[in-house]
Design a protein around this nucleic acid. Structure first.
Lengths: 112, 112
DNA sequence: AATAATTACCTTGTGTTGCAAGGTATTTAA
DNA sequence: TTAAATACCTTGCAACACAAGGTAATTATT
């Protein structure tokens, strides 16, 4: 019914993906395909059907803005850029992430 | 429409909660209310409506078993216990968690 | 004895998220 | 002119967390 190992990873990605996107865009603007590559090279497998709706959601929430840019090879690219509101959200996410990492450490206790 | 800071935490909990439950039950058997308390003391806020379906899901997947035990104060308690299959799943989750922590570090890059 | 408080269990309905599996449009190479 | 590559996007589904309810057993209070 499910590939256990892959399902485990998929579930853990939830909620962390938005954090990853904002973190990537904090450094420099990027378009969807390049974000996919950066995630892939960081070992986080994400598919288009996940990323596009996510970017649109974050744009609708005012966390991102975008501009079109012609490409020398292929169709135009939609470059996303983090907004001030996005930076604030990212700050909250940094805190939330650190808290969760600490929580897991606490629960795993002396085992780890 | 949403409390941003709390929503961020709620989303990040997704997928990690199952990991927390198995980790808690790895150490010793426990019943729902005591699991709630342990999570709370580790700073992870979870409500009953989240925990009960989760325990039932994990039991149905064969990751947990349970037994009833009378209580000296109140109704009987349902003590959950991790199974061998649960331990295997926990092993996969340990790996998945470490991978995600590494991934975030990679993405945050030299910033952190 | 009747009522309230406490402790423990559980369910239903809703919104969010990730994914599989599709699709459209532009440019370049064959 | 056809195919390949690149880039965009949508629809339908399943899993999850949560709010807001509810039931049942024991003990304390009136």
């Amino acid at each position: 019914m499910e590939n256990s190992a892959e399902n485990v990873r998929s579930q853990m990605r939830k909620g962390v993906l938005e954090y990853c996107i904002l973190s990537i865009l904090e450094k420099k603007e990027a378009y969807a395909s390049s974000i996919l590559e950066e995630l892939k090279s960081a070992n986080m497998i994400v598919v288009e059907g996940t990323l596009y709706p996510l970017l649109i959601r974050q744009k609708n929430q005012g966390l991102l803005s975008y501009r079109w840019e012609e490409s020398t090879q292929g169709p135009p690219r939609k470059y996303y850029c983090i907004t001030e509101k996005g930076r604030q959200q990212l700050g909250e996410m940094d805190l939330a992430w650190q808290e969760i990492v600490e929580t897991i450490k606490t629960i795993k206790g002396q085992v780890l």
